[in-house]
Design a binder for these strands. Structure first.
Lengths: 207, 207, 207, 207
DNA sequence: GATGAATGAGGATTCATTCAT
DNA sequence: AATGAATGAATCCTCATTCAT
């Protein structure tokens, strides 16, 4: 069943504008199968369009659609972080986890884009990620760490890997955990783990 | 230029058997562009085959080739870890980094496969990764950590993310580091970072 | 030369819709060479399409096209028989021969499909033929024959073989007849033969 | 399982020479799916050959194999008829039915070949069928029929259709008969039907 | 007699995209 | 804003056949 009809059923509100509908289903597909693994036909069908041509009314081409998906996905993340300029890491991580576990497609999208050799696509993600790293940097710099200056990028990138990696690749986690990695309980554990890991990695060591 | 001719030129040794040649170029392509992003035609051409049909003499189909690539790639990694059963983490990490920086395609292959929704592909990777996690588990269990039992899978998976993530996604790292992430110097920094991170994450805390 | 241009040339009427055009040329090809013996490319070219892809706009795949061809071909035959519910056999045979000699592709199509081991294809033909046999049955049952009840299916099938077989396999007939089996004269003889054969097979015997 | 191993298992006798083995499996495949519907690879595999190339040691090419299959298949039929030069039709029909129901692939092979557009293939069958028709002719001519001279080819061809058609296309017969068309019982009925039909078609009419 | 390897041609089908309506 | 039709290029894969071993 197409997402279009599905959505029409679930809520009585006016249906999403076609463009957003397309973005939604495209986000899902791209996150699952990557840019090359999804066909425009598939997306159009999922969006309830009877014809692929209709999609081109909203997006110049497949790549433009992909870019739009990523752009739209990155925004709230950046916002989450931006809102927590001066906060300590704990609550920020909490909020990030909240967001990522509600929008589980996003980390995979970013992960994939980071792997893509295509200059263009990578650039989009990179530019979207830069502010995120900047915020991380600032936070790390404010706290007096006993890491050397030159280690900070590695540390920031490592934290990024830890936080996003779980959500992006939980399928690899599945075989080694007793409980489903996306269950509320597992998420709670991961949340706790991340906080402790963060504390250990960024914390001041004993004098 | 095809890899075949390239290799024939560079070393005077007898050329690789066709099958290995195909595996080599396939590994490269799959790591770069993912399963869906590579065409059999492309791989065959890279391998110096005049025709795609020849490839099918060695591999039943594209997926079988992909599986073979991953299987072959995972083996040395598992070996690296297996050889260091009772060693402390430091040297193992060192050796892993050595291997990963020499075979930079591998982490990306694994990363990609972990993202794939395709049951089959993911299963392959998962089964290849399980022994790796097992080894990590054993190591973590031997050392008396002040993590709780239930945190151990998350910790093991986190370390995996930290170690492999850098190599898999260094392109995302590029915009935030002053030196190229694959330069020897950057690798040295990452090596040092990982050791310290490992020490902090798995080390005993002060009483 | 493509049928498309051919037709455009011969009559000034508006050209057939593409779909029907495809059906026409496919009917011809399938009848001549069988399902496996015809390529979609060939059919598309014959239909004047510049590309095979266009064909897939009208038919889901090769088999769907084949099914459509058979379905379309069976209809008039069934109609011919249906219209002659209560008539004696003679005129019906006449009309059948008229139709079959005007549409000589059809018997071969049916013949071929009856030979195919492919479950699907055979089912299509079988289901299309059933009403035809039913009509034959009814006719045979009405006349008081001195065949036993259990012989009737064999008799009906035999008549079917006699009538359709000539048109389907006249090429086998060629070496043993002095005149070309599709010449009007030969058709006339076959018509006469069939009527007499029918009379002898279904007729009441002398007391 | 390949026919090769199968046969090795069933009887302790020395296995068929490869060439005959190939002919056997080819006969089966060609009868089922026609010339175009069978691949050399398939036949080679069925014959237990590990490689298609081996087949070319025995037959110049696919068509030569097909011709050999048909030639080999026609021989015993012609023999059956030849042995009964002066006999009445009844026993001959019996013997034909016996042969055809033991070798059910043959009628289908012939039926298919009769449909083939390929000049070469059809010629083979036609030339193999000619003596059969000749025998039929002779028989018909000996008996004083009240058919006209010019009807005789049509009559002979009709009898051919009746006899072979049942075996070639029993799958079309399936939906309209209460018992499986290849069951001994159905064969018995068909045998009886054919004899009666033959009697009626070729018998002298009332004076 | 048999086989592993290779290959050019072609198999069906899907790709992203365009255009007229 | 949407759609039916069309299309060139590409997809994976199989075809029959050959050759050296």
């Amino acid at each position: 069943m197409s997402v279009a009809s599905e959505q029409a059923g679930t809520n009585g509100e006016q249906p999403l504008p076609t463009k957003d509908l397309i973005l939604d289903v495209a986000e899902k597909r791209f996150a699952e199968h990557g840019f090359a693994g999804v066909s425009v036909r598939q997306i159009a069908a999922d969006a309830g369009l009877k014809n692929q041509a209709s999609l081109y009314h909203h997006f110049r081409n497949k790549q433009a659609l992909y870019e739009a998906v990523i752009q739209r996905g990155m925004e709230p993340i950046i916002e989450v972080i931006a809102r927590s300029k001066t906060e300590p890491a704990g609550p920020v991580i909490d909020r990030l986890i909240d967001h990522l576990s509600e929008k589980p497609l996003l980390p995979r999208l970013i992960w994939r884009a980071g792997l893509d050799e295509s200059e263009d696509l990578r650039r989009i993600v990179a530019s979207a990620l830069t502010p995120l790293f900047q915020l991380g940097f600032d936070a790390l710099s404010r706290s007096e760490l006993d890491w050397e200056e030159e280690d900070l990028p590695h540390l920031a990138f490592g934290l990024f890997q830890l936080i996003f990696g779980y959500f992006a690749q939980f399928s690899l986690f599945e075989p080694i955990t007793p409980i489903p990695p996306r269950s509320p309980e597992a998420l709670e554990r991961q949340r706790r783990f991340l906080k402790r890991a963060n504390a250990r990695l960024t914390g001041r060591r004993r004098s």
